[in-house]
């Protein structure tokens, strides 16, 4: 194909397409690469550093999610430095975060042999923000991946209600100038919930069920439908608890050509009419 070129991955020559990131090449070549902040439909935040690779000629490791492949690049994904850095990233996160609702993070950590006890010290201690009827923010689970900030900003919603505030270990996600969600610019589209990889922002219904010990993934049935509110045609996935026949949450497939996983407040939260008239 025009614009194709070769790069070397762990000593093996592979083809890359013009404009591709290193991670895209690695994924196609089935080179397992851990990622946390990376999301297919968001600008790479290159913040978690889980996907770093060693690039010949570069002093520091580079984030494969962000760095574009260039002809002749020589990349190592299994060198001692890469293995040590990736493991370090997961061990540092495990030493500070509540990972109860982050099975993906835990699974990746186990796969690369991260030791949860390697580091100890101050943990993230944050209040739980239950300040609106639609979602709950539990920032002790937040790994500051920037996904919610990007979804709230130019990548999807253009609302800019969420931002990063504070610095260093004190840095965290805030609504506006530290307001409650209802007082901020938030329009409650819930796209931050959709992209959160650790359950730090979670739909309130799911959160309440988890607190009460009623949430059971195996009881969830996903029903696909099309949103009936307007003519855009967003595809919805209704997550229905089979025990009560109640909708617990609504999502949209990240690969759907209309939504890319993003919805508006009506599509995501405007479903209580389905429960009208129930006892």
């Amino acid at each position: 194909m025009a614009g194709d070129f070769k790069i070397s991955v762990d000593g093996r020559e592979v083809t890359a397409h013009e404009g591709e990131t290193i991670l895209q090449v690695l994924r196609r070549e089935e080179v397992e690469t851990p990622t946390l902040c990376y999301h297919d439909n968001l600008t790479p935040a290159k913040a978690c550093r889980a996907c770093v690779v060693e690039l010949k000629g570069s002093r520091a490791l580079v984030a494969s999610c962000e760095r574009k492949a260039e002809a002749g690049m020589e990349i190592q994904t299994e060198s001692e430095r890469v293995v040590n850095a990736r493991r370090g990233v997961f061990e540092l996160l495990l030493s500070q975060n509540d990972t109860e609702t982050a099975p993906n993070l835990v699974a990746q950590a186990q796969r690369i042999g991260a030791d949860p006890e390697h580091y100890s010290g101050l943990r993230y201690e944050r209040p739980l923000y239950d300040d609106n009827p639609l979602f709950v923010r539990d920032y002790e689970k937040c790994i500051l991946c920037y996904r919610c900030v990007e979804a709230c900003g130019v990548d999807a919603q253009n609302t800019f209600a969420l931002t990063v505030s504070g610095r260093g270990f004190e840095a965290g996600i805030a609504a506006g100038w530290g307001e409650t969600m209802p007082d901020s610019a938030c329009v409650f589209c819930g796209n931050c919930v959709a992209v959160c990889p650790t359950g730090a922002i979670m739909d309130r219904r799911e959160h309440q069920m988890r607190v009460q010990g009623r949430y059971d993934e195996s009881q969830m049935q996903v029903t696909q439908t099309t949103c009936s509110y307007c003519g855009v045609g967003c595809q919805l996935e209704l997550h229905v608890d089979q025990r009560t026949n109640e909708i617990v949450k609504v999502t949209s497939p990240e690969t759907h050509p209309v939504t890319f996983g993003f919805l508006c407040v009506k599509g995501r939260y405007g479903y209580s009419f389905t429960e009208a008239g129930r006892e």
């Binding site: 978690c48 270990f169 004190e170 840095a171």
Partner: peptide
């Protein structure tokens, strides 16, 4: 360094804190 880290990336945000400890 722990105080001046911007907090963007994990190795620095958490790493400088652990180093300080």
């Amino acid at each position: 360094f722990a105080h001046e880290s911007c907090g963007q990336c994990v190795p620095c945000r958490v790493g400088t804190q652990r180093q300080y400890e």
